[in-house]
C-alpha cells in the first residue's frame, strides 16, 4: 500500500513535471538565445490554452488534433509580439536591453489578462474530452491518459527542438547568434530573422503547454504569473540557457512538489520558490549549468 502510494506520488509528480519542463524549455530558449527574459511567458501559455478551448468548444475538435493549430497560431502571435515590441530593443546595449525587455514583458503581463477577461470572461475554463477522466491501471498505479499524452508530446517537442538546433542550418544560425550575435551578423546570418523565429518557437511551446494546462487543470485569465514563476524556478534550477537540463529540472520540481505536498500541504508552492531563491543566491549557474 505504502509502496503504491509512493509510486503514485512520483508518477503524479512526473506528470506535472513534464508540463513544468515544457513551459521552461520555451522560456529558456528565448532567454538563452536573445537574452530576453519574457516575464509574460505564462500569459502566452494561458492564451494557448484559451485557443485550444475555443477550438474544442466551438468546433468540437479534439485538443490533441488541434495542437498543431494552436502551435502555429501561437508562433504567429509570438513572432508578431517580437516584431512589434521586442525588436526595437535590439538597439540598446546588453544590460539595458535585458532590463527593458523585462519591462516590456511586464507590460504584456498587465495587458493580456485584461484582454482575455474581455474575450472569455473570468470563468474557469477546462477542456474536457470524453477520455479526460480515464486512466490506465498498472501494478496498482494509475496512469491517467491525458497527462500520459502530455508527457509524450513534451518528449516529442523537446526531441524535435533538439534536432532542429543541432542538425539543421537554422539551428546552426541560432547557436551562432547565441554565442555572439555581432560575429554571426558579420558572417552573414540574418540575426533579426533568427530572433523572430526563436521567439515564435518559444511562445509556440508555451502555447502547447497551455493546451495541456487546460486539459489537466483549468485556465483563467490570472494563471499566467504562476506559470511564469514555475518556469523561472525550473530555468534557474537547470542553469540558464540549458534546454535539455530545463526539462529534467522540470521533472525534478514536479516530483519534489508532489512529495512535498504530502508534508507541507498548501505551503508546497512556496517550497519551489524558496528553492529558487537559494539557488539564485548560492549557485547562480544552476544545477546543470557550466561555470
Amino acid at each position: 500500500m505504502t509502496v503504491e502510494l509512493v509510486a503514485q506520488t512520483i508518477v503524479n509528480g512526473i506528470h506535472v513535471g513534464a508540463l513544468y519542463g515544457l513551459v521552461a524549455v520555451g522560456l529558456s530558449l528565448i532567454f538563452g538565445v536573445m537574452k530576453i527574459l519574457n516575464i509574460a511567458h505564462g500569459e502566452f501559455l494561458m492564451v494557448g490554452g484559451y485557443v485550444a478551448f475555443w477550438v474544442f468548444d466551438l468546433y468540437d475538435t479534439d485538443p490533441f488534433l488541434s495542437l498543431p493549430l494552436v502551435a502555429i497560431a501561437m508562433f504567429l502571435l509570438g513572432a508578431g509580439s517580437y516584431k512589434l515590441l521586442f525588436s526595437g530593443l535590439a538597439k540598446f546595449h546588453e544590460e539595458s536591453k535585458m532590463e527593458n525587455s523585462l519591462l516590456v514583458g511586464f507590460g504584456l503581463f498587465l495587458v493580456f489578462p485584461q484582454i482575455t477577461r474581455m474575450l472569455w470572461t473570468t470563468d474557469e475554463r477546462a477542456i474536457t474530452p470524453a477520455y479526460s477522466g480515464g486512466s490506465l491501471p498498472i501494478l496498482g498505479v494509475r496512469l491517467a491518459y491525458v497527462p500520459l499524452g502530455a508527457l509524450l508530446v513534451a518528449l516529442v517537442v523537446i526531441l524535435a527542438l533538439h534536432l532542429l538546433l543541432t542538425k539543421t542550418y537554422f539551428g546552426k544560425s541560432v547557436r551562432a547568434t547565441t554565442q555572439n550575435w555581432k560575429s554571426a551578423k558579420l558572417a552573414g546570418i540574418n540575426v533579426e530573422r533568427t530572433y523572430l523565429i526563436t521567439f515564435g518557437l518559444g511562445v509556440a511551446i508555451a502555447g502547447v503547454a497551455g493546451v495541456f494546462v487546460g486539459l489537466i487543470h483549468a485556465i483563467n485569465p490570472d494563471i499566467g504569473i504562476g506559470w511564469t514563476l514555475k518556469a523561472l524556478i525550473v530555468v534557474v534550477l537547470a542553469g540558464i540557457g540549458s534546454i535539455g537540463g530545463a526539462f529534467f529540472a522540470g521533472l525534478i520540481l514536479g516530483v519534489v512538489e508532489a512529495v512535498g505536498a504530502i508534508f507541507m500541504g498548501p505551503y508546497t508552492v512556496a517550497l519551489g520558490l524558496v528553492i529558487f531563491l537559494l539557488i539564485m543566491i548560492f549557485r547562480p549557474r544552476g544545477l546543470f549549468g557550466k561555470a
Binding site: 535585458m98 532590463e99 498548501p266
Partner: peptide
C-alpha cells in the same frame, strides 16, 4: 543578484510571503 535577477528574486520573495 544584479539587474533582472534582482527583479525576479524580489518578485519571488513577495510571492513566498503572499502564499
Amino acid at each position: 543578484m544584479r539587474g533582472i535577477y534582482f527583479a525576479i528574486g524580489t518578485l519571488v520573495l513577495a510571492e513566498i510571503l503572499r502564499i
